[in-house]
Design a protein around this nucleic acid. Sequence first.
DNA 1: CGGTTATTTCACGATAGTGTCACGCAAGGT
DNA 2: ACCTTGCGTGACACTATCGTGAAATAACCG
Lengths: 229, 229
Amino acid sequence: MTPHVLVVEDEEPIAQLLKYNLEKEGYRVSVAGDGEEALLLADEGKPDLVVLDWMLPKIAGIEVCRRLRSARESRNTPIVMLTARGDEGDRIRGLDTGADDYIVKPFQMSELLARLRAVMRRIRPALADDKVAAGDVTLDRGSHRVKRAGRDVHLGPTEFRLLEYLMQHPGRVFSREQLLDAVWGSEVYVEARTVDVHIGRLRRALNAGQEFDPIRTVRSAGYSFDAEG
Amino acid sequence: MTPHVLVVEDEEPIAQLLKYNLEKEGYRVSVAGDGEEALLLADEGKPDLVVLDWMLPKIAGIEVCRRLRSARESRNTPIVMLTARGDEGDRIRGLDTGADDYIVKPFQMSELLARLRAVMRRIRPALADDKVAAGDVTLDRGSHRVKRAGRDVHLGPTEFRLLEYLMQHPGRVFSREQLLDAVWGSEVYVEARTVDVHIGRLRRALNAGQEFDPIRTVRSAGYSFDAEG
DNA sequence: CGGTTATTTCACGATAGTGTCACGCAAGGT
DNA sequence: ACCTTGCGTGACACTATCGTGAAATAACCG
């Protein structure tokens, strides 16, 4: 599936310019004209990346950023903000609110695209299909369902995202810190050991009535998801 | 352990300013005055983050960036570059060469610190193909697995790192002190003979059911990993 | 609001991994 | 042969790390 970008920009010509160029690059693009619309579209469109103008009518950019970050759905969606030249204060506040990057207006389109590429590269693995399957485990993002050997498995939201992330890179070992960053988000601080507890619950739910445990503990390194075999 | 930052900057006042402020933030800081020194320090200091001035004597910033990216040690170390105002071309080239971010000079210290915080949150996920193989032994950093002739070999963390280090330079002999420094780290003190014990454990695990021992003892010199042949 | 569900932290026990030592054998020199 | 030095390894006390139940919070949902 092609990456989906949400552009939040109130100046129509700029919005169109962005849409045109991004689509040429192969992205799917939605445009929101103000903060309210942005939150609405973000909620239903589940974009993979948000380009966010800092000066917006109705709801300020920083507020949009904060709300996107506090909503579970969009907690890990990269946000690139557009700021006016010279407003360092805004940039710092933005980055600390959870934006991943910024571009100063006026910008070169080539630079913006390079930035987006850089940001996308960091999360590329997340842009997989709707369904992930490995071994006898199936995870469906659409219906938010997980099955083990055909049986439905009930997971809490965090366990779901944890499994989702692990299954996206089968066999790969992630440290607790990496998992916290990927699953919980980089802006919240929780103890690394919390991961253990969720891994435990995930295991209990996933392995009910099964003997093989697809989640591997690598001592002093982290956890990984491994299909049987 | 506190994060270690390598600052590569040829203008002494700026370098000192950076060092001062970064240390105040709790980072450990090394300073390199040119590209050559940068590569040297990066190699031996294993920094967690590199702040790289783009205009350097001897070796240009972009070249330093490229070499850091191609070296195994520093492949996943985030790089933030410092560029002069208005040089969009450089920035784009830099980002595409593998830099993770840039700051335009002159910059606000607070902005730079905010950027570094943002970059530090994301430890670059290691690339897929970081495997080492020699003879019938395979070591995969990503999945944290070691195989001998196709069979899984279980190693403790220290044995894993030890083998990893030895396999990186097949045939080369390392003294116990060198191995302690590379595998255990320079800040801990352990007896040199401890290496022997770990070599022994590594051998036992690796050679189970095999007749050839890929680890060679060089009397009064050290150990090396040698593929069969 | 009240009740439910999810999340986080803590503490404790279980277990895997680590560093030292000591003893015996091996290698090398004279 | 004999002595010296270096290496391999079993044993053991000590740590670090992991799994998990339970308690305390926080989020959610009518």
